[in-house]
């Protein structure tokens, strides 16, 4: 099913801002091709027209210095348009303004060598306290059992479940080295830096399974560091959430 998401071009566009990023990629590539082709034709013309021929000397005078600045100014104007009409507005929509926490699903995502730990607040809606000293194979995030709001927290590894129809707002961090959270279908990428908590958001537009990759060299297992985002219909997501056991009390005793 998911195989069809990925091919030779851009993967499926499955988030609200994916189309906006794709627009930029297509626009720039169209411009690049146009510039390169026009320029290539001119170049080949010059190469043929001005090849050395007996009896034809090169012209010493140089003229049109000012005219040669025209391409520079065209490029500058095009780039200024790109910056101020496209890049800065879209960048601030995607990376600067984040949706309100009350309208979103909030999760904490922690990268480690070589996995993604996804932390849900549980029914109380509050994330429990975490302490690096408590990290253990059975408590990958170091949740503090003495903090009441930690007791119902849910932790999944390499599986991120999110609902369709509202944004997912995540705090991204890392336990050890720098990783980079990359979901090609959502066109989202953000480095996960230890010691920093970086807000990331996206709103899926399709249900299904989408791959999470790590985009920053993080050690010998970098290639194997992968996970999946499962986008569910809202109802299904609630059902999934209810089925989860708290991380600190997996047997539910």
């Amino acid at each position: 099913m998911t195989e069809s998401n990925y091919g030779w071009g851009l993967p499926t566009a499955a988030s609200t801002f994916a189309k906006e990023i794709d627009f930029g990629i297509y626009l720039i590539h169209a411009a690049m091709f146009a510039i390169f082709i026009l320029w290539g034709i001119f170049f080949v013309y010059l190469l043929i027209r001005y090849r050395a021929r007996p009896g034809v000397a090169a012209k010493h005078e140089e003229h049109g210095i000012l005219a040669s600045l025209i391409p520079d100014f065209i490029v500058l104007a095009f780039e200024l348009c790109l910056i101020f009409l496209y890049a800065i507005p879209s960048w601030s929509r995607i990376k600067v303004e984040t949706p309100g926490a009350q309208d979103s699903l909030t999760v904490e995502v922690t990268a480690e060598q070589f996995a993604w730990d996804i932390h849900y607040p549980g029914p109380d809606g509050k994330f429990g306290r975490r302490d690096p000293a408590l990290v253990h194979a059975s408590n990958v995030l170091g949740l503090d059992p003495n903090d009441p709001s930690a007791l119902d927290d849910i932790v999944t590894v390499n599986e991120m479940h999110i609902p369709l129809g509202r944004p997912t707002l995540m705090g991204l961090t890392s336990k050890d080295v720098i990783h980079s959270f990359f979901v090609p279908d959502f066109r989202i990428k953000q480095d996960a830096v230890p010691g920093m908590r970086i807000p990331v958001w996206f709103e899926p537009t399709k249900t299904g399974k989408f791959e999470i990759g790590c985009a920053q060299l993080c050690g010998f297992g970098h290639a194997l560091m992968r996970g999946d985002v499962f986008v569910h219909a809202p109802k299904e997501f609630e059902n999934w959430l209810v089925d989860q056991k708290p991380a600190l009390n997996p047997t539910g005793k």
């Binding site: 990023i21 990629i25 411009a31 995607i94 990428k189 985009a215």
Partner: peptide, 16 residues
Amino acid sequence: TGLPLGLTTTDIYLHD
């Protein structure tokens, strides 16, 4: 090809 990498928005996808 430096252009789509230099633009912040498209770099989100193409970076690394």
